[in-house]
């Protein structure tokens, strides 16, 4: 019947409005739920979430060794041409030539933090760091070389 539906409509409408008001009322009275970070003030204690992606870094261990073979899988995976790998040929003690990276060039200004390079890397040599204060005064500073000077590939990584 029309009138029954009309009254039902009104009551279900009021009920749904009250549900919404209950939720906001809960937040209004529970200030512990506030998730705002007062950023520059709490810079020392700021904890970034694990899944936050700030920039690509090449992992170096304590012997200044990394796991990058220079396979360019990340370069191919990158949709923005953010990564450019310059390779060279090392001479191993046995006298054989071996491919290795010369420069791992990373353009932070082009990167969208899409994580595809990390997924593509067969040796887990790169990861996403949680840094986010990237502003610099010159755009050239955003083009970074990720392998540290004098670093070399870790033994046993092919």
């Amino acid at each position: 019947m029309f009138i029954v539906k009309y009254i039902k409509d009104i009551f279900s409408g009021i009920k749904s409005l009250l549900v919404g008001m209950r939720r906001t009322g809960y937040y209004f009275t529970h200030h512990k739920e506030i998730i705002t970070e007062q950023y520059p003030d709490n810079r020392d204690t700021l904890v970034m979430a694990d899944r936050f992606k700030g920039e690509v870094v090449l992992i170096h261990d304590e012997h200044n060794e990394h796991a990058c073979t220079g396979c360019t899988a990340c370069e191919l995976a990158c949709p923005n041409a953010t990564i450019k790998i310059v390779t060279k040929f090392d001479i191993t003690p046995e006298g054989k030539k071996k491919k290795a990276i010369d420069k791992f060039v990373y353009h932070l200004e082009l990167c969208t933090m899409c994580n595809l390079c990390i997924v593509a890397c067969p040796t887990d040599a790169i990861k996403m760091a949680q840094t986010f204060e990237h502003s610099v005064y010159d755009r050239a500073e955003l083009t970074k070389i990720l392998n540290k000077p004098g670093s070399k590939i870790r033994e046993g990584i092919e």
Binding site: G25, Y27, F28, E33, I34, Q38
Partner: peptide
């Protein structure tokens, strides 16, 4: 202030 607290924010401070 009310808006901020209802949206789980701090508001002007």
């Amino acid at each position: 202030r009310v808006a901020a607290w209802m949206q789980i924010r701090l508001g002007p401070n």
